[in-house]
Structures are given as structure tokens and as C-alpha cells.
Amino acid sequence: MSLALLKEHYTNKNIIMSTKNWPLWEVFVRSKNGLEHRHFGSLHAADAEMALENARDVYTRRNEGVSIWVVESKDITASNPEHNGELFEPAQDKVYRHPTFYDLPDDVKYM
């Protein structure tokens, strides 16, 4: 088949394709006990079990993990960076939450 024909074949196929796409999952991996799970990336899978198996193959081929969490991406609620001001700025002027805010004599010990 020529490339042009192949293309046409593919495009036609695409129109009638009724396939349901595998959903997207976010993958979190604990690299070793004592550390938290960290976001490693995402992948597609039909269900949670398959997402775990795929995550094993995609993200831990070199002993990068001892535990994996997967969660469907659509179930994550994320803050909007446009609201970063109202969300995070209030913490900026609360210097009294930090130990250096307090004036103590230099020779005070164990504090």
C-alpha cells in the first residue's frame, strides 16, 4: 500500500472508530520506606489494576520504587495558579510564625 493510501485508510478508519479511550491515571511512587510517595508522571490504562501494572513497567524499571499509588487524573482537584495570590500570599506577612521573629538574648542556650 502506498503511504497516501495508508493515510487515507487510517483517516477513514478514524472517523468510524467508536473506541472508548483508556482513561488517564496519575502515578505516585514511594522510592523507599521512610520516604513519601512522590508524583512520577501519568499513563493510560483501562482500570486501576492495569494502571498499577503499567506503572510498574513504565516508572520502576530500575528499582525506583517499593510502593505505587495510582489515581484517576479526573479525580484530582487542583488549585488554580490564577488564585495563587489569595491562596498563598496571606502566609507571606506572618513572619511571627518563624523562630527568628523573636528577639532573645544571644547567650540564651538550648533554644
Binding site: M1, S2, L3, L6, Y10, K13, M17, T19, K20, W22, A46, D47, M50
Partner: peptide
């Protein structure tokens, strides 16, 4: 041509597997 053909064949040939996995899920 061969590369694109191999790639498209793999994708289309795998379609029933992807559909079956989804139906099973």
C-alpha cells in the same frame, strides 16, 4: 513507508485488545 506501516499496523492490530480491556474494566 515501512516505519509508518509497522506503526499503524501495530496500532490498528491492537485495537481489539484495547477495546476488550475497556469492556472488561
Amino acid at each position: 513507508k515501512e516505519r509508518m506501516k509497522a506503526r499503524i499496523d501495530a496500532w490498528e492490530g491492537g485495537e481489539w485488545v484495547r477495546d476488550a480491556a475497556m469492556a472488561h474494566a
